[in-house]
Structures are given as C-alpha cells and as structure tokens.
C-alpha cells in the first residue's frame, strides 16, 4: 500500500515537472522547467488546504535514491573517450580545481557567517533537528 502512495505521488510530481517544462517552452524562459515545477510545489505546500503528506512519501523516496537517477547520465561518459586526450584532461583538471576552490570558499565563508552567531547555536540547531 505504501508503494501505491509513492507511485501516485511521484506521478503527481512528474505532472508538476511537465507543467514546468510547458511553461518554460511557452514563454521561452531561461529557467529550467524542473525548477519552475519546484516553485509551483513550494507554493502549493504553503497553501493551507494542500496537505504536505500528499507528497511526503514520494519526495522522500526520490531524495533517498537520488544517486540511482544519476547513473544513466553518468554512464554517458563512455561516449567521450576524447576526454582522455590533451585538452580533455585539461578540462577535467579545471573542473577538479574549480570544485575544490568552490568547496573551500563556500565552507569557509558560511563557517564564519554561521559561527559569528553565538557558539551554542550549533548545538541548538542540531538538537532541534534531531528532536524532530
């Protein structure tokens, strides 16, 4: 029965995604359709008559298995054996460096911004989450 709920909810999320893509194409927007779909769902969730349990199971399922959905796209690397030649390797190196720079920069910045607040806040936030 739980799986029936999950399937129906994912079908609903799929419809929102489809609506998002339709809106994007119709108005030639620069924002991807799935993000528009996400905005729509976020707005729906904030409407009192829309119960968040209507999408909870489906959303949790998709989030839990996010890695699975990435696999077919990642296997696509197989088509780009040219990435292993000179300029391909440079581009991979750039992506590695840029990823490390981004991570170091953003963790350091948010670390300073977040811990500028009282030190105990961290414990507080953590216990709030865990107590949920």
């Amino acid at each position: 029965m739980k799986y029936a709920y999950i399937i129906v909810q994912i079908a609903f999320l799929y419809c929102l995604n489809f609506i998002g893509i339709t809106i994007q194409n119709k108005f030639h927007l620069m924002i991807p359709g799935s993000i528009i779909g996400m905005f729509i769902l976020f707005c729906l969730l904030n409407i009192p008559i829309f119960k968040d349990k209507w999408v909870r199971e489906g959303s949790n399922f998709l989030n839990k298995h996010l890695t699975l959905f990435f696999i077919p796209a990642t296997v696509g690397i197989i088509q780009y054996s040219s990435l292993l030649n000179g300029s391909g390797l440079i581009s991979i190196g750039i992506v590695l460096i840029s990823t490390i720079v981004t991570m170091v920069f953003s963790t350091t910045l948010s670390f300073f911004l977040s811990s500028r607040k009282e030190q105990n806040k961290e414990q507080l936030v953590r216990s709030e989450f865990d107590g949920k």
């Binding site: 994912i10 799929y14 995604n17 893509i21 991807p32 729509i40 489906g58 998709l62 989030n63 996010l66």
Partner: peptide
C-alpha cells in the same frame, strides 16, 4: 526521474 526529483526538492 531526475525531473520529478528536482520538483521534490521543494519538500525539504
């Protein structure tokens, strides 16, 4: 499924 997965990010 990646599309609906992005839509579901609204939930968290």
């Amino acid at each position: 499924m990646l599309g609906p997965a992005v839509v579901s990010f609204a939930y968290p």
